[in-house]
Every structure is written in C-alpha cells, then in structure tokens.
Design a protein around this nucleic acid. Structure first.
Length: 352
DNA sequence: GTCCTCGGACGGTAAACCTA
DNA sequence: AGGTTTACCGTCCGAGGACC
C-alpha cells in the first residue's frame, strides 16, 4: 500500500481508515441490489468501478460511455453487487469526499523524447517542436531532441524469479492486471463483451483512485437468473448458473478501505479464523496487490519511499555549493559535458 | 512571492531469460 | 518463437534554496 503513502496530489489527507459511513444523497432504488442494511454488515454505501459495459454500450467513437463511477455497492467484504442502475437511471454524483481519492493521482505520462532544454531543466516537455516550454521562453531555436544512449548489452543476469500464475481459469481474480502497454488483453469492448466468470483478469486496470478488490459474489438475497440469461439488473449471463465473479475496484473513500477483502470462491471454504470481520483488514496475503502503481520500481527495493510518504531528504543540500547545471547522471556522467543547453539556453538558465 | 535547481520517483522499453 | 522478467536509461515531479 505504498501508494497510499505517496503523493497526495493536493488531496486532503484523510484519516486511515476512512470513515465508515460515506454520506450518499440518493440510495440506489432499483430492484437489485437489495437495500443497504440488509445484512449483518455496515450498510455502506460503497463505491466500485464497473469493469466495462456488459451490453456493448459504447459511444459513437467506440468510446466507453459507461460513466467511470464511482458506482454504488453494498455488502460485506467480498460481496459487491452489480453496479448497474435501472434502465434510464443514473447514479447520483458521488459525495465529494469520495471523489477526491486519498493518496492517488493520475499516472504520469512521459513523452518519448524530451527536448534538450526540458531535459536539462528536468521539466515537462511535449511532443511538439518547438515544445510548449521552449516557446514560452523564447528558445524555440534550441528545442531539439537529444540523442538517446544505446542500451548496454551483454549484461548477465541471475535466474529470474517467476511470478505466481493467477488462476483466472477458475475465476479467481488475483487482484492484479496486466500492466498497460504490455501484452495486456484489452478491456472489454463492444466487440469483446465483458466476461463474467472466467477471464476476469481481462478487465482494464482500475482508474486512478480506485483499488482492486477481489472477486465479488452476489449476496444471499440475489437470485441467479437462468443460465445464459441476463439478470434483471442487467447483469451479464452467468455461465453454468454460477454466480458472476467480477473484479471491482474499491474506492479509497469506501468502506472497508483499500480493498482488503478476503476471497470466498464457491469451491473454497471461506477462511475460518484469520479472516477479519467486516471493516477490519484481514490477515496479510489476502490481497497482496492493492495498488496499481505499485507494480513499478522493483529494481531497487531499498529505494522504497519513506514511511511517511515523503521523499528522502536531499543529500546535497547541506551547504554544499550548487554546481550550476552540472547534474550528474546515474551513470556518473556529467550532463554538462553532453552538450546540454547551458550554452544553448539564452541569457542563463531558463528552467521553470 | 516567484524563480530555479536537482534528487530521486516514476515510466518506457530493450535485453536477458524462460517455457512451451 | 513468443512470453516474461529484469534493469537500464530517460522524464519530470516537487521540495527547498535563491533571488527579486
């Protein structure tokens, strides 16, 4: 849960765990799910993120027109109801406290190649040339792409540690997804409808601010529709009459927080003793992947962020004289010598 | 108060490794 | 051969010092 500790992106710090009750103006009034408070668990409301439109509900440009949530859900840990509202109805806007996720921010998007000026100033660049920043500072003439170093070759490595395979075949949602940009199966689309039982890992990663829960099961009051028939709530058909297992994403403002949900697959007995009661984080290992962004930064574990979420203090700030535009790169090479724009930049430094 | 610097977190991706 | 894992290398956020 290191992401929790990371940047808050200006969002207010909120206590952990978040308040149990998140005010919600208009409880969902459809035939399904049942009203809050139906079970021996906190009445919610909770919020979840729908994996994809099950009915191929897409916009004109093929864009997913299902609102990104948050959606309402109810139930005890491990149980989330289908979030679809009744036909023609929309869920009310989430409470403000829930729409400003705790400790989250949009994933940083990098340009493929920053211009030499931006690279030297360690500032955001864009694809255009001259880039926006260079235009702003009137140095368009020197706004050129740098030269990318060739990658080292022939470096031997030790044996790889294979990651445990997730059992998506049996419907288990591992709580992980393939990182975007890799060989990830694409999110369900109009042509590839949302799966319901297997291949639950084929959903897109949760939006920023949401956290993966585990497979979700319908609550006891739910009556499964006949095999292959959509539920009255619009839920997708249930193969073999089994309950749908869908990964949902827990909003940080939800309760219980941070997706600490034990799994109760139908073919497995629920964890007996070490399962925490609703609202309590269960014993470790229940859901290891809690945050999407935690997949990165594995090559240097000791570099983990400080416990308080702050960056470690700068090492060279202790009265050491600043060496203007003399940034030493990771490989020990001084950028100054690589023809960085210390002279390309007119009238001294333009870093912003 | 604004500007500027730059440490280091983060992201992209190629190379090395693994498995069918 | 194709998929997975690792780690190199670049980008750029954001804290904090410098400057006006």
């Amino acid at each position: 849960m290191t992401e929790q500790n990371k940047s808050t992106n200006g969002a207010q710090e909120q206590p952990y765990p978040p308040p149990v009750q998140v005010p919600y103006p208009q409880p969902y009034a459809g035939p399904y799910p049942p009203p809050p408070g139906a079970g021996p668990y906190p009445p919610g409301p909770y919020f979840a993120y729908p994996p994809a439109p099950a009915d191929g509900n897409h916009g004109e440009n093929g864009q997913n027109v299902v609102p990104p949530g948050p959606y309402m859900m109810f139930g005890p840990p491990g149980v989330v109801y289908y979030p679809q509202p009744p036909q023609g109805q929309a869920f009310p806007a989430p409470p403000v406290s829930a729409s400003a996720p705790v400790g989250t921010k949009a994933k940083r998007k990098q340009v493929k190649m920053a211009c030499t000026n931006c690279a030297a100033a360690c500032k955001r660049c864009d694809e255009s040339r001259p880039c926006e920043r260079c235009q702003k500072y009137g140095i368009s003439g020197s706004c050129i792409d740098g030269q990318r170093k060739e990658r080292k070759k022939g470096i031997k490595r030790g044996p790889y540690k294979r990651k445990p395979k997730s059992h998506s075949d049996s419907g288990n949602f591992s709580g992980e997804w393939t990182p975007p940009g890799t060989q990830a199966p694409s999110a369900p689309t109009a042509t590839t409808p949302a799966p319901s039982l297997h291949a639950v890992t084929q959903f897109a990663p949760p939006p920023e601010g949401y956290y993966p829960a585990t497979i979700m099961y319908p609550p006891p009051p739910y009556i499964h529709p006949p095999e292959g028939q959509p539920g009255a709530d619009g839920a997708p058909p249930h193969p073999n009459g089994q309950p749908p297992m869908m990964p949902y994403y827990i909003h940080p403002g939800a309760y219980p927080p941070y997706g600490h949900y034990p799994m109760y697959p139908p073919h497995m007995p629920p964890p007996p003793s070490n399962t925490a009661p609703p609202g309590q984080p269960p014993a470790a290992q229940e859901l290891t992947t809690v945050n999407p962004s935690d997949t990165s930064k594995k090559d240097d574990e000791p570099d983990a962020p400080l416990a308080n979420g702050k960056k470690r203090p700068r090492s060279s700030k202790s009265g050491e004289p600043k060496n203007k535009r003399s940034k030493v790169t990771r490989n020990g090479k001084d950028k100054e010598e690589e023809g960085t724009p210390s002279e390309a930049e007119p009238s001294g430094d333009i870093a912003v």
